[in-house]
Amino acid sequence: MSRVIGFEMSSQEPEKAATFYSRVFGWETVEQDWEYWSISTCQREGIIGGISKGPSDYPHGTRIQIEVDSIDEAVKKAIENGAKVVREKMEFDDFYLSYLVDPVGIGIGLYEKK
C-alpha cells in the first residue's frame, strides 16, 4: 500500500503559513531560497514537505490530514492563530475529524484517534 511521504502547500503568504504551522503544531520550518520553507513534522519519524509561494492561477492548494492528541486543543490554538473552522468536530467509530482553513486559506483536516 502506498503511504504519504511528503507534501507541498501553495500560499500567497508562505512566511505567514510557516509561522502558523510552527506555532500550532510545533513543526520546524526553515526558509530556503525562492520563497520556499522546508518543513519537518517530527525529529525521528513523520513526513517532510514545504510551503511555497503559489502562482497567481493556483494561489492555494493541498489539504492534509494532521493527527493530533486533542482536536479541541488544536482547534483552540488554530483559532487563536487566525484559522477558521469549516466543519466542527465530527465523531466516527474510531476517530474524530474536523476541517479548518488556516490564516492564508489552506484547508486542513484534524484527526484524533479515540
Score class of each variant (00 low, 15 high):
residue 62 T to N: 06
residue 62 T to S: 07
residue 63 R to E: 13
residue 63 R to W: 10
residue 63 R to K: 13
residue 64 I to Q: 13
residue 64 I to W: 07
residue 65 Q to M: 14
residue 66 I to Q: 07
residue 66 I to R: 11
residue 66 I to S: 05
residue 67 E to P: 03
residue 67 E to Y: 12
residue 67 E to V: 01
residue 68 V to W: 05
residue 68 V to Q: 03
residue 68 V to E: 00
residue 69 D to W: 02
residue 69 D to G: 06
residue 69 D to A: 01
residue 70 S to Q: 01
residue 70 S to E: 07
residue 71 I to R: 05
residue 71 I to T: 01
residue 73 E to I: 00
residue 74 A to M: 14
residue 75 V to A: 05
residue 78 A to R: 03
residue 79 I to S: 00
residue 79 I to W: 06
residue 79 I to A: 01
residue 80 E to A: 06
residue 80 E to D: 14
residue 80 E to L: 05
residue 81 N to F: 00
residue 81 N to V: 03
residue 81 N to W: 00
residue 82 G to W: 08
residue 82 G to F: 04
residue 83 A to E: 02
residue 83 A to N: 04
residue 83 A to Y: 04
residue 83 A to T: 01
residue 84 K to D: 01
residue 84 K to L: 12
residue 84 K to H: 06
residue 85 V to G: 05
residue 85 V to W: 14
residue 86 V to G: 02
residue 87 R to C: 15
residue 88 E to F: 09
residue 88 E to R: 15
residue 89 K to I: 08
residue 89 K to T: 11
residue 90 M to N: 10
residue 90 M to Q: 14
residue 91 E to N: 10
residue 91 E to Q: 13
residue 92 F to M: 12
residue 92 F to H: 10
residue 92 F to P: 01
residue 93 D to F: 12
residue 93 D to K: 09
residue 93 D to T: 12
residue 94 D to F: 13
residue 94 D to G: 10
residue 95 F to I: 07
residue 95 F to Y: 14
residue 96 Y to D: 02
residue 96 Y to E: 09
residue 96 Y to C: 11
residue 96 Y to P: 03
residue 97 L to A: 05
residue 97 L to Y: 12
residue 98 S to P: 04
residue 98 S to I: 02
residue 98 S to L: 14
residue 100 L to D: 04
residue 100 L to E: 02
residue 100 L to K: 09
residue 101 V to K: 12
residue 101 V to A: 13
residue 101 V to N: 08
residue 101 V to H: 01
residue 102 D to H: 08
residue 102 D to I: 07
residue 102 D to K: 11
residue 102 D to S: 05
residue 103 P to Q: 15
residue 103 P to C: 11
residue 104 V to I: 09
residue 104 V to N: 04
residue 104 V to G: 01
residue 105 G to A: 06
residue 105 G to V: 08
residue 105 G to T: 11
residue 106 I to W: 08
residue 107 G to R: 14
residue 108 I to S: 03
residue 108 I to Q: 07
residue 108 I to V: 15
residue 109 G to W: 11
residue 109 G to K: 04
residue 109 G to D: 10
residue 110 L to W: 01
residue 110 L to M: 08
residue 112 E to N: 11
residue 112 E to W: 01
residue 113 K to S: 13
residue 113 K to C: 11
residue 113 K to I: 08
residue 113 K to H: 10
residue 113 K to T: 07
residue 113 K to D: 08
